[in-house]
Write a protein that binds this DNA or RNA. Structure first.
Lengths: 151, 151
DNA sequence: ATGAGTGCAAATAGTTTGCAAGCTG
DNA sequence: CAGCTTGCAAACTATTTGCACTCAT
């Protein structure tokens, strides 16, 4: 199957989920999803806006849509150390964590998730609506070189 | 030892570390440290400003000092899901993680830290200046009741 | 045609920077 | 008294909200 076809399939899946929720598959939404799927790396709203070819004032639309896509289960959010949000698509029900470069957002999935331990600790403490965050931040080789070519 | 004395001891320790770094122990710094130590829970810059009795325009000072205190090793930062920063004091060399209420910032330390696994994964991936984040967010019992008294 | 979604403007929240004046060691 | 630190103003970044208009179903 071509890469193009895979993207279309991904978008169709989301369109289906959206319909079930009374949401509509619009042009902007399709562009955002296409960008998320094909870039296949976490990006900020502003990066997505630019890479998906939106104009400067369309940033609002990007934000609103990313937010509403989160609940569909195929887009997840990462918060950087400075508080900026990044978004990326995920395989159905396959949330995962990363080692991510704080400069260029280059990310590698890490095969480590303590969801079970963490959630049970939280339940025992009487918390509800539990969400766990595990991320590893660092500077990747490329960005390290850029900052200090001597290395 | 009285609670007052413990706080003073904590502040003296930090003053010592500051002196080594060429930093000075000033009135505002002492107030911030006292608040961090006595509240003993993560607080935002704005919360610290208010609770330590600073005026509205002193928020800058609070930010600047919290930032510079981070490197001293006795104050750590937590980033909430919305990107807001919280700060708390820590036992020397005793960084830890939390289950924390996203509404009132009530927090309980969790006895779980995969620093070793995570850092070695990151090193293998060629990253430097590695920092790991593990946090569990939820809604605590009190805040759940407040939002929905029926429960 | 009906209401979900968009786009532009404007507001907001959190945080940072510039600079003259103040205080600590 | 040198220079670290403060305080007030102002700038900035990321994100959100209001509202009239548009488009998908």
């Amino acid at each position: 199957m071509s890469s193009k076809a895979k993207t279309d399939q991904f978008i169709d899946q989301i369109a289906e989920i959206m319909r079930e929720q009374g949401m509509r598959m619009t042009k902007p939404r399709e562009r955002i999803l296409r960008e998320l799927y094909e870039a296949s790396k976490p990006q900020s709203a502003e990066e997505i806006r630019q890479n998906a070819g939106f104009g400067p004032s369309d940033l609002v639309t990007v934000y609103r849509n990313l937010e509403s896509m989160l609940s569909l289960g195929r887009v997840q959010r990462i918060i950087l150390e400075n508080g900026t949000q990044l978004f990326e698509w995920v395989e159905a029900e396959q949330h995962h964590h990363h080692i991510i470069c704080r400069h260029c957002h280059h990310a590698e999935p890490i095969d480590f998730c303590a969801a079970h331990e963490l959630e049970s600790i939280a339940q025992r403490a009487g918390f509800s609506e539990i969400n766990h965050v595990i991320e590893v931040f660092g500077t990747c080789k490329a960005c390290e070189k850029e900052a200090d070519p001597a290395k």
